[in-house]
Design a binder for these strands. Structure first.
Lengths: 184, 184
DNA sequence: CTGTCCATGTAAGGCGTTACATGATTGT
DNA sequence: ACAATCATGTAACGCCTTACATGGACAG
């Protein structure tokens, strides 16, 4: 559901091939939604069957032919409907909390190692996020209402990631202290 | 991977049937990991094939027979190994951020509605978390090192959820303000 | 001459959910 | 009378990932 709507969203800007879509995914929403080429191709098939997108073949010289997809009127309607209706909350699903839940089987030192390793990985993700911020600044050039709105929403997804990583970092710092003084 | 290790984790306390496992899942880790009975049964089959758990049939009167699973020595080793090794970070995967990313297609009012709806849902989840806290207090009775450690880790998963919900709530409050004054 | 870009896909499998089937016992 | 609890599973499907296949153009 999310993937197909993301595809509709990108096609609302301009017609694109599956290959193009993979690139824009990686450039703009990869920090909160990743996907694979094969999945995109499959999903495009489904979308076409449902009449939400239409394709046309484009012959090219020196390069493989392209299959370009564009939004149909129904596709645009479906996108707008999906955008406007609040989604049900997905519950937290963090495999690594299972580790924490049963971590009392480990030594305090092992627990602290676990937490520190995660802290380091998280700090690196945060740094990567800053780079996405750079990309947004580059693209932001325009001043039309539409461009300001688009940039604001992009930035919102970034600050969401920022807030979450930062919250977890703080939690980890507190946990590391507590784990050090647990009765063995 | 996570589910099978969660099962091993619970079996490290005592032998249990698939039915029992579903209950302890719902009582203790449902706030960050949900699952279904059918999935548990399937996973138990796999675990038994791999020699990490062993089953025995127990006949009962007036009730359906049980199939009780217990950890084997290999199972215990596998659990301890899995617990001690840091897991790779799973990337953020929030379908609803796709909504936000393309929300510039909506009116400011619609965007604010979206944010407020999520805010309400989130506040309710937070309240539910507080209830889990009550359950922990009940169980905490003992004072042995083992009991203190177990309770501390349980509580840690709770405060993790708390931190995340609270961070998102704060983010939402900021976003609602910004969305109200976006150029249309 | 090695690797990356362009471009489209197939096949297989893992993880997870929903719906369904069965049937006795106990509580309201 | 009706629903919940106890207890185990099967079948079908959805979402997603990994690995694989193909092949020309172009840059180092």
């Amino acid at each position: 559901m999310s993937l197909s709507n993301a595809i509709l969203g990108f096609l609302s800007y301009q017609p694109m091939s599956g290959y193009d879509l993979k690139k824009v995914f990686d450039e703009s929403i990869q920090h909160f939604w990743s996907t694979t080429q094969s999945h995109i191709y499959k999903e495009l098939d489904g979308l076409e069957e449902r009449g939400l997108v239409a394709s046309r073949a484009i012959e090219q010289e020196g390069k493989p032919n392209r299959k370009e997809f564009s939004l149909t009127a129904e596709g645009r309607t479906a996108l707008l409907e999906w955008l406007a209706a609040p989604l049900p909350l997905e519950r937290i699903r963090e495999g690594w909390l299972i580790q924490i839940f049963f971590a009392h089987h480990l030594s305090n030192e092992q627990i602290v190692n676990l937490l520190r390793a995660r802290r380091a990985a998280l700090a690196q993700k945060l740094a990567e996020l800053e780079q996405v911020d750079g990309i947004i600044q580059q693209r932001k050039a325009g001043h039309s209402a539409e461009q300001v709105r688009t940039a604001a929403m992009w930035q919102a997804t970034l600050s969401y990631g920022h807030a979450h990583y930062q919250a977890e970092l703080n939690w980890l710092d507190g946990m590391i202290q507590r784990a050090e003084t647990l009765p063995e």
